[in-house]
Design a protein around this nucleic acid. Sequence first.
RNA 1: GGCAUCGUGGCCGAGUGGCUAGGCGCAGCUCUGCAAAAGCUUGUACAGCGGUUCGAAUCCGCUCGAUGCCUCCA
Length: 493
Amino acid sequence: MQLYQSQEIKIQNSLSGKKDVFKPLNEGHIGMYVCGPTVYSNVHLGNCRTFMSFDMIFRYFRHLGYKVRYVRNITDAGHLVDDAEDGEDKIAKKARLEKLEPMEVVQRYTVDFHNILQKFNFLPPSIEPTATGHIIEQIEIIKDILEKGYAYVTNGSVYFDVIKFNEDHEYGKLSGRKLEDMIANTRELTAQDEKRSPQDFALWKKAEPQHIMRWPSPWGDGFPGWHLECTAMSTKYLGETFDIHGGGMDLKFPHHECEIAQAEASNGHSPVNYWMHANMLTLNGKKMAKSTGNSILPGEIFSGDNAILSKSFSPSVVRFFMMQAHYTSILDLSNDALLASEKGFNRLMDALKILKQIETSKISDFDVVAWKQKCYDAMNDDFNTPILIAQLFEAVKHINAIKEGRESISAEDKTLLESTINAFVFDVLGLEAKNENEGGTDKLAGVVELLIELRKEARDNKDFATSDKIRDQLAGMGIQLKDGKEGTTFSVL
RNA sequence: GGCAUCGUGGCCGAGUGGCUAGGCGCAGCUCUGCAAAAGCUUGUACAGCGGUUCGAAUCCGCUCGAUGCCUCCA
């Protein structure tokens, strides 16, 4: 029997506003779409958190035995800098500023994106489509929406008619907004506006002569609107209705609202059963913004090359840090918080090593079966990784107690504990064990071992001046000696 | 101004109508020549003010604050 058949999952659904029991459209199969990055600059850490949350969700579904088709797009066209009439495509703007071909910009930052995600140990999605690769599909949807009367053409551009749509559909149901309120709160249209109403959004934008990113269409040369690509690609690969659509909280409105409108206007179906939104990451309690200097790149955390950090942190520590918070909560990143996570992460990893070596006996003081179910209960309750991690530390406590002979475990339970904890730590949370030689080389290890031996001789001779000198000077170089019952080990800080 | 998500002990963060996670730090203990490391033990906190209730941090209302989006501004 597949594991998923015995685990009922609840998901916080933005559409219903509550936790709904998850039922996939096709038993054993899940279709999941997540809005990917707009590749016009280095991926920032907040983006990584969103994608990491869905990576964890993808991993958990797979662990349960679901066949998941996970689609995460690359936005390489159509995302406008602002919604004004002279709105410029984000990528085209960057290309102009850096004197590059737009596709050079796309290539550069797509590579950066994949690079960072690989360091974070992400699983690749099943399909990673690009907006520019689906222009034809987008044009087809626009035709469809025009035909149904929910869009209009002005001066070579096509706009979605929100007011018309709202007459027989509900625009704003995802974000909890009412169209009347939006209209009441909106500025008047100016004379040169092409839109009938300020709420209308572009499905297709006419390209001015100097615009490089352009494709032919029935309405003239232009480029697709930002919201449309996700509708085109999710429909193509997952169907007119699919299980899960995810993204950052900031995309709920207008992006996801518009996706719903486009899908309902073109094919009459509500496109998604479960809308999931990951919350924001703040830095030192304030929002991340390049303009205020309150920002950090993933690469800067790995290298420690940022003023707010006292040291560098490995990708797994950052991942562990993020997994200690629930994906729907705002998470605040700070040096202290990372330091705390690093210690906890190391303790967890040490316990995993100890677990391999502990001896078994006839009876167990640790109810592994009940503990295992608590781990699943945590994950089944809207992917509650903080609770899962609390359970993992519960196991750590038992592992240490068994090692010290205060508790015992049967061989059978040990096998179960080991397979369960490894599955959750590595397969579901996606953490990676520390590399023993991290920061050092075999030669360095040899030299330090030699010094440890010399120090031991000095200590045996009660020559503490020499032994302390070795210890303190190594510490000064960032090499910490750890005296244990079975001799001295070291770690490079 | 509107919509949304929140406001938990020194810090980070779960949870939820009565049984009150976890990590880090601090303190104590064990170990140790000393220290570090490691392990163990320890915390009655839930923005404020009202209300509902036998009982609320958990439900309701208001206020204040944070973050995102929209608007405004530019």
